[in-house]
Design a protein around this nucleic acid. Sequence first.
DNA 1: ATCGTTGGCTAACGCCATTAGCTTTTAGCT
DNA 2: AGCTAAAAGCTAATGGCGTTAGCCAACGAT
Lengths: 186, 186
Amino acid sequence: MPRAGLDPAAVTAAAAGLADEVGLANVTMGLVAERLGVRTPSLYKHVASQADLNRRIAVLALVEVGDALREALQGRAGRDALAAAAHTLRSYVVEHPGRYAATLPLNPEGPDDPIAVAGARVLDSLAAVLAGYAIDPADTVHAMRLLRSLFHGFATIEAAGGFEMDTDVDQSFEWLVDFIDRGLKA
Amino acid sequence: MPRAGLDPAAVTAAAAGLADEVGLANVTMGLVAERLGVRTPSLYKHVASQADLNRRIAVLALVEVGDALREALQGRAGRDALAAAAHTLRSYVVEHPGRYAATLPLNPEGPDDPIAVAGARVLDSLAAVLAGYAIDPADTVHAMRLLRSLFHGFATIEAAGGFEMDTDVDQSFEWLVDFIDRGLKA
DNA sequence: ATCGTTGGCTAACGCCATTAGCTTTTAGCT
DNA sequence: AGCTAAAAGCTAATGGCGTTAGCCAACGAT
């Protein structure tokens, strides 16, 4: 029988795709194997465990988010950059809820943990957004946490179907971006 | 052998306590049974399944949060109420991360689903906070979603250890409450 | 052509959720 | 007080999933 020609990246990609389709919690090793046309134990030649696979999905998601943010912020500043970052993050979570969910248990095991590296790149983009506002350097950390908390919370609740659909969620999101923009200018 | 004298509430309470101690994902039926001094299958006389147990934990947490909020908001308004609600929510999540995590998959199966009822009570308290500000009625929905997203996001990231500890998280939280207060006044 | 490495497979183990069916306690009724 | 029926516990068993061990075939380098 011919070989499947897998590698860690291919396994991670398949798992990430499944996570978006059926939810991260329902991504089973058997399901990933089936998707790849392989038997379950074969996966262990490429990833160490299910926990390892989840970490790889998280890194993939953080890298993708980081790239998307960097691209979206090209040449933008101030309110423009804020809106671009906000929409980019929300779109990513809506389109890839499973991948994104894998990033929630942020447990960097060290400073060179790939998850910490990829996470830091995302934070750099958020810092770039804040650079467009005149913020007391002592407050930038707080403003960063504000953005992280708000975007993460909104995306998570939206992905979980936590908002009543009788009022337009897009409209709320625009209102929210505007609210933050006004606040950061003061 | 004497009887254990369990009921759904006791099982739920034990499971919620374990969730706070070992994390919701690690709450196994066997662990709950052991905590209660009972064999695993006996639990099924009181709860239908593990999913049912998780929903009960979520309801418990939402009721507790709702009660805590209502009490904290007694006689307060405006910035005072906002700060009280914020601190109450954060404290609850820090002290009961496992219970709170059970509330994340918000899937109300109907308008009389206990999870929807308990959730609505929490939202009522948030609405009470906003009542202390002069907000265009058309914008209250957006402001509600702002508060939910922000508090939920902050608490979730904090509970996951997602904030670098080199800058005081308490200080960020105060800054954040102040930021929202100023914004809601404009 | 061959040899070692690599990637796939089958078989097997242990843990967990769940169900079936039995036994004993216990509350309510006479 | 004694009886009965439901409720609450137990043991045994099933099926799924993660993981490991050990075997064999494919493939790249010599």
